[in-house]
Write a protein that binds this DNA or RNA. Structure first.
Length: 111
DNA sequence: GGGCTGACTAAAA
DNA sequence: TTTTTAGCCAGCC
C-alpha cells in the first residue's frame, strides 16, 4: 500500500494545523512525531505543498534553531516573520526569540 | 534507471 | 569552536 506516503503529507498538515497560536515547532519534531526522524526534509517539502493550503500555518514551523529558513517560500520574505509577531511570537533577524520556550512538540503535546 | 535538489538534523573532523 | 559530510526521501530532468 502506498497510502503511507500520502498519509505522511496529510499528517504533516494535521500536525501543523494543530500548532497553537504563539507557538512554533521544528521540522525534525514533526518528522519524529510521524515516525520518520531523519526525514525532516520531507516535512519541509510537505510544507511547500501546503503553500496553496492557506489553512496551514506553515509560518509556525521553523528549523531546529528557530530560524525562519522557509520565509523565502512565502508570499513575501517578511510575511513569515510579521505573521509570527502578529501572533505573539517575537522574531528577531529571522530568528524566533525564546524559541525554547515557544517550542511546541507534537509528540509531547499530542502524546 | 541514474543523478540533482531541497523550508533539515546529527555526527565527525 | 566552526566547517564538512552523510543520511533522509520525494520530485524533476
Amino acid at each position: 500500500m502506498s497510502d503511507s506516503k500520502k498519509n505522511f503529507f496529510e499528517d504533516v498538515y494535521e500536525v501543523v494545523k494543530l500548532i497553537p497560536e504563539g507557538r512554533v515547532t521544528s521540522y525534525g519534531a514533526i518528522a519524529s512525531y510521524l515516525g520518520s526522524k531523519g526525514s525532516a526534509r520531507m516535512v519541509g517539502w510537505a510544507l511547500i505543498a501546503s503553500q496553496p493550503f492557506t489553512n496551514i500555518p506553515a509560518h509556525r514551523v521553523v528549523n531546529r534553531v528557530g530560524m525562519l529558513t522557509g520565509k523565502q517560500h512565502f508570499e513575501a520574505s517578511n510575511a513569515m516573520q510579521e505573521r509570527l509577531k502578529q501572533e505573539g511570537v517575537k522574531v528577531e533577524n529571522d530568528q524566533v526569540v525564546d524559541f525554547d520556550k515557544q517550542f511546541w512538540d507534537p509528540a509531547k503535546e499530542l502524546m
